[in-house]
Amino acid sequence: MFKRLMMVALLVIAPLSAATAADQTNPYKLMDEAAQKTFDRLKNEQPQIRANPDYLRTIVDQELLPYVQVKYAGALVLGQYYKSATPAQREAYFAAFREYLKQAYGQALAMYHGQTYQIAPEQPLGDKTIVPIRVTIIDPNGRPPVRLDFQWRKNSQTGNWQAYDMIAEGVSMITTKQNEWGTLLRTKGIDGLTAQLKSISQQKITLEEKK
């Protein structure tokens, strides 16, 4: 169930391209415009997507990853294993993690069937560096609404905000991946996880038929 919630949630996290980005210092504006741009692209490019579902990787690479804190999220997933990894191991892992996100997020976007969304009203940021933004996803086919909290983090150097995690039903996506990959990290280390991520990233994206 959580895996499905995570995939549905990713439908609204794909941010804007650099040329049309919203105010990078306001995570609420980023979330709002990102959702609108993403849904528009999914709707307008269905012919290309249906002809070649792996085209979704391109959308992810162009529109999402430049505005997601990939390395920060990847380091959180590694936890204690990050500090013990060599620079070469980290570089290989982050490259594999990025390719994994292209496949995983692309597969999530393949679930698009006309969903709509509501974003919580903007709250004062103050001096906060981590801000959760509640998004409610509404399914046109009558499924119950899904309420999610996207975690946005302020870059201490640039002042810009980027998304790095999502919490559904009190469970963090980062925590879920830590639990899912924990045994592999304990037995085969970061190299074993890197190899698995490379394998997963090679899987073809498949479209979910409308139910």
Rank of each mutant, 00 (worst) to 15 (best):
F2G: 02
K3Y: 05
L5D: 01
L5A: 02
M6T: 03
M7E: 00
V8R: 01
A9Y: 14
L10E: 01
L10V: 11
L11D: 01
A14T: 10
P15W: 09
S17Y: 11
A18Q: 13
D23K: 05
T25L: 09
T25S: 12
T25K: 05
T25A: 09
N26G: 08
Y28W: 09
L30M: 13
E33K: 05
A34K: 05
A35C: 11
T38D: 01
F39S: 02
R41L: 03
L42N: 04
L42F: 15
K43R: 10
N44V: 13
P47A: 12
P47L: 13
R50S: 10
R50V: 07
R50A: 10
N52S: 11
N52P: 00
P53T: 12
D54T: 13
R57G: 12
T58Y: 07
I59R: 00
I59S: 06
V60C: 14
D61L: 02
L65Y: 12
P66H: 05
V70L: 05
K71A: 03
Y72Q: 00
L76G: 02
V77K: 00
V77S: 08
G79F: 00
G79A: 04
K83S: 10
S84C: 12
S84K: 08
A85Y: 03
A85P: 06
T86F: 05
T86V: 06
P87A: 13
Q89K: 06
Q89W: 03
E91N: 08
Y93K: 00
A95N: 10
F97Y: 10
R98K: 08
Y100E: 15
K102F: 14
A108Y: 04
L109A: 15
A110K: 14
H113F: 04
G114N: 10
Q115M: 02
Q118E: 13
Q118L: 12
Q118C: 13
I119E: 10
I119P: 08
P121A: 06
E122V: 10
P124F: 13
P124S: 13
L125Y: 09
L125V: 09
D127R: 05
D127E: 06
I133A: 07
I133N: 02
V135T: 10
V135G: 03
T136G: 13
P140D: 15
P140C: 15
G142S: 08
P144I: 08
V146S: 07
V146K: 02
L148V: 15
D149C: 02
F150Q: 03
Q157V: 12
Q157T: 08
T158L: 04
G159S: 11
G159K: 10
Y164S: 03
M166W: 04
M166K: 01
A168Q: 01
G170P: 00
S172L: 00
T175H: 04
T175E: 03
W181R: 01
G182A: 14
G182D: 02
G182N: 14
T183L: 06
L184R: 08
L185R: 12
A195Q: 13
A195T: 13
I200N: 08
I200C: 13
Q202P: 14
Q203W: 09
Q203R: 09
Q203C: 09
Q203H: 10
T206Q: 08
L207P: 08
E208R: 07
E209F: 12
K210Y: 13
K211R: 10
